[in-house]
């Protein structure tokens, strides 16, 4: 249906192809921006005139006790998250297993550790010596629980095992999101259940679980502050110790807050790198 040269067009529809599009005034945007700037200025003025000695914030931001604290926070967050992911993967595989005993154990674990507050779990691990004065493997090795359950180990077990319960649900959702045809194709080339999970299902599940795991990791960085109740020297614990001595409560809480924000901000680009790594083959041009 190519239009022939003699085709007659109706009148009254002028050619608009030469006209430029005029800029629209976006009044809503300008008003909103103005209101927000005013609110921020008011807030800044309030804090500047409030009872905060900002020089203390600057001075204590980099004192050794605070720096040690933030290092301990990061170490604990990484270690507990690693433990949580390992447990989460194992428990998710157990929950999707054809074996009813494994499924029940995995379900029970999730129920128990998601159903109790993490601070209670931390206190239980820290006070394990009250239940079992001596722990160990009979005939091989044993030790006094008081010496063994250091703040570090108690915090690692408490946070890591609790995290495992949440991570297992994230991992399970990720594994369920992979098409069942993938599992059948893996079986068809002779893979056993576990090899199909490891080689085919989990790598594809990772792409789905990284955003929620990033969320979980951010929560974990902040959840380490709970370990201050069992004397683990993370950054909030250090800040508290300093303000007990110098009474600069708000200044030191701001210092801790700045560090938490810094660590969490550093995690976002890390997550983007991981997401790119696991998106292999799933975007059209990643050759």
């Amino acid at each position: 249906m190519s239009p022939g040269p003699a085709q007659a067009l109706a009148e009254g529809f002028p050619d608009l192809s030469g006209l430029a599009v005029a800029r629209r005034m976006r009044w809503g945007r300008w008003t909103a921006a103005l209101l927000i700037v005013l609110a921020l200025l008011a807030l800044a003025r309030a804090f500047a005139n409030g009872q905060i000695e900002w020089s203390y914030v600057g001075r204590f931001l980099t004192v050794p006790a605070i720096l040690d604290g933030i290092i301990n926070t990061v170490v604990m967050a990484v270690a507990a998250m690693a433990l949580g992911i390992v447990l989460g993967v194992v428990v998710a595989i157990m929950r999707l297993s054809p074996n009813p005993v494994l499924r029940a154990v995995a379900g029970g674990y999730t129920w128990l550790f998601r159903g109790t507050p993490v601070i209670l779990q931390l206190l239980l691990w820290f006070n394990l010596a009250l239940v079992f004065p001596v722990i160990g493997v009979p005939g091989l090795w044993s030790g006094r629980a008081v010496d063994l359950m250091t703040p570090f180990l108690s915090a690692l077990l408490g946070l890591g095992i609790n995290q495992g319960a949440y991570t297992s649900e994230v991992m399970r959702a990720g594994m369920l999101s992979v098409d069942v045809g993938q599992y059948e194709a893996a079986q068809a080339i002779g893979m056993s259940h576990l090899r199909a999970l490891r080689r085919i299902i989990l790598p594809q599940a990772m792409r789905v679980v990284i955003p929620p795991l990033g969320n979980e990791f951010i929560s974990m960085v902040k959840m380490t502050s709970l370990a201050s109740v069992i004397q683990y020297p993370e950054v909030l614990h250090s800040a508290e110790n300093i303000y007990y001595a110098n009474s600069r409560v708000i200044e030191l809480l701001i210092v801790a807050g700045i560090w938490y924000l810094a660590v969490v901000s550093a995690l976002t680009p890390l997550q983007m790198l991981l997401e790119r790594r696991f998106a292999r083959g799933l975007t059209g041009n990643s050759g």
């Binding site: 194709a185 079986q187 068809a188 002779g190 790598p203 594809q204 799933l282």
Partner: peptide
């Protein structure tokens, strides 16, 4: 299963592999 090969309606290639 090693002695049989299977081709599926929906291909089921592993998307994370070349």
């Amino acid at each position: 299963r090693l002695s049989t090969g299977m081709v599926f309606q929906r291909f089921n290639l592993f998307p994370h592999m070349t």
